[in-house]
Structures are given as structure tokens and as C-alpha cells.
């Protein structure tokens, strides 16, 4: 019988702990497949955040560090600078990257730090139980914006790709979605591009993945995917925001 699907070598056999319908699992698979396809086995250091993906160190089949909330880009910088020949990636949620860790991500990007950041934007704090995130949409109800997010109270959602692409350091910044199979395939291409740039020494890359948190969005897995497609991607348009190769 022909094998049509095989788990990537860059994933361990440990079962994911993610909720049913959560797209963290898809994101993990894409990162692992990209690393495997680029031959990064035995030459990769991953940095896990604080958030639902805190246990990512159990899932990626490579050396892993688990670091403080928001500090993944700083730890990745330290690891990469002492092992410039290794592939270093940070995997971060929106609270981790776009709230508590804004200084770290902005400056890692500004330095053009030769690392790859996988940014999971699910518009909510998953791990702590559905509080408002910096990327929560206007009107979106969360446990700390119970009447829906409003501009006077909370300001507007932060658009990370748009913001970081104004810097000179990054070599590639793209926003993709995990809401349907075609988008997932595109996301994988973007992740491969990110790691490829790193392998070629081109500097900082970030791939934002619009993701679901059905549990805290209070939606079924399918309805959560629709929310990403119909609501989130209006505020967070998909696309490539920076590509130094395209400019040339």
C-alpha cells in the first residue's frame, strides 16, 4: 500500500495536548516538515514560549529551550549568536510576542537577527483561559473584554507583520492562515522560505499564522475556522509584507 501521509521526522512520538480543532497542531506539523525538507535534522535549536505551546519542547525532535513569557526572541538571539551554523527558531503566541514580548521581537527584527519566528495569532490568550490579546478584534468578546473590545478602552489590534516590515532588519515577513487546506499549503511554503533565508544567512524572518482557539473563542472547530477566514483575515490581511529577494 502506498504511503500518502507520514509524520515528519522532526516531530517526536509524543501526543499533542492541544484541544480538538486547535490549529497549533497544524502549525507544529508545518514547521517540522519544513525543517525536515530543508535537511535541518541534527542542526536545529527551537525556543518554546509561554502559552498553550509551552510544551512544544516535547514535540519538536530537536534541541529545545523553554523560556520566559515573551522572551523567546532574546533567548533565540543568544543561542544563534553562539551557534551561527545552526537553525534557530522561536514559536510564539500573540500574547507572548505582541504584548509582553514586544521589545524583544521588535529588536530581534531590527537587528536582523538570523532566526525564524513562527507567530501564532489566534486573537486570544489560550492558556490562561481566553483573555483579551493584543490581536483581539474590535467587538470580540473575551473573558477580560466581556462587552467586546472597544477602541476607547483597549485600542486597536496590533498588526505585527505590518509593523515589523517597516524595519530594515527582516528579510522575509509573511502572514498566512491555517483556516483551509489551500491556505495551509501556502503557509508551509512561507515557513520553508523563512528557514531557507536563515540557512542562506539573509536575516530575520517571521511567519504569522492566523489560527484558531475554538475552546476560548467559544466556537466549534469549524466555526472557529470560519471566524479566521471571515473576520480575522479582514483585519489581518494575508500576504507577504517584506521579501528582500522580491525587491531585488
Amino acid at each position: 500500500m502506498a504511503t500518502v501521509f507520514k509524520k515528519s521526522k522532526m516531530l517526536t512520538d509524543t501526543k499533542f495536548h492541544y484541544c480538538p480543532g486547535c490549529t497549533h497542531g497544524i502549525a507544529h506539523r508545518l514547521v517540522a516538515e519544513a525543517l525536515e525538507e530543508l535537511g535541518c535534522e541534527g542542526k536545529t535549536i527551537g525556543i518554546a514560549p509561554v502559552g498553550c505551546s509551552v510544551f512544544a519542547y516535547n514535540y519538536f525532535n530537536c534541541d529545545m529551550q523553554q523560556v520566559a513569557h515573551g522572551r523567546a526572541p532574546a533567548a533565540a538571539t543568544g543561542a544563534k549568536r553562539v551557534h551561527p551554523d545552526k537553525v534557530v527558531f522561536a514559536y510564539q503566541g500573540d500574547g507572548d510576542l505582541a504584548s509582553i514580548g514586544t521589545a524583544e521581537i521588535v529588536h530581534a527584527a531590527a537587528r536582523g537577527e538570523n532566526i525564524t519566528v513562527i507567530f501564532i495569532n489566534n486573537a486570544i490568550y489560550g492558556m490562561t483561559g481566553g483573555q483579551m490579546a493584543p490581536t483581539t478584534l474590535l467587538g470580540q468578546k473575551t473573558t477580560t473584554s466581556q462587552y467586546g473590545r472597544t477602541v476607547p478602552l483597549n485600542g486597536n489590534p496590533i498588526k505585527v507583520c505590518e509593523m515589523l516590515s517597516t524595519l530594515d532588519g527582516p528579510s522575509y515577513i509573511a502572514r498566512c492562515s491555517l483556516a483551509d487546506p489551500a491556505s495551509v499549503l501556502k503557509a508551509k511554503k512561507a515557513i520553508i522560505k523563512g528557514f531557507k533565508n536563515q540557512l542562506e544567512g539573509k536575516g530575520f524572518t517571521l511567519i504569522e499564522l492566523l489560527s484558531t482557539c475554538p475552546t476560548n473563542m467559544g466556537l466549534t472547530p469549524l466555526a472557529a475556522l470560519d471566524y479566521v477566514k471571515n473576520d480575522m483575515s479582514k483585519i489581518f490581511p494575508l500576504g507577504v509584507f517584506k521579501d528582500i529577494d522580491a525587491i531585488k
Binding site: 529551550q65 522572551r71 532574546a74 533567548a75 543568544g78 543561542a79 553562539v82 521589545a103 524583544e104 521588535v106
Partner: peptide, 26 residues
């Protein structure tokens, strides 16, 4: 060796974490 002026002391100590975790005398 590696020298970085970090964006803050918070980042600096986490760079130490990353570098020390990766085996360097940091």
C-alpha cells in the same frame, strides 16, 4: 566572542539564558 548591547536588561538576561543554554560561557 559575542557582544550584544541588548534592548533592555530583561532581554540581556534572556540572551544569557539562550547562550548559556546552548553551552556558551555567558
Amino acid at each position: 566572542g559575542v557582544f550584544i548591547q541588548a534592548e533592555s536588561e530583561v532581554s540581556a538576561i534572556n540572551m544569557v539564558y539562550g547562550a548559556a543554554g546552548a553551552g556558551a560561557r555567558a
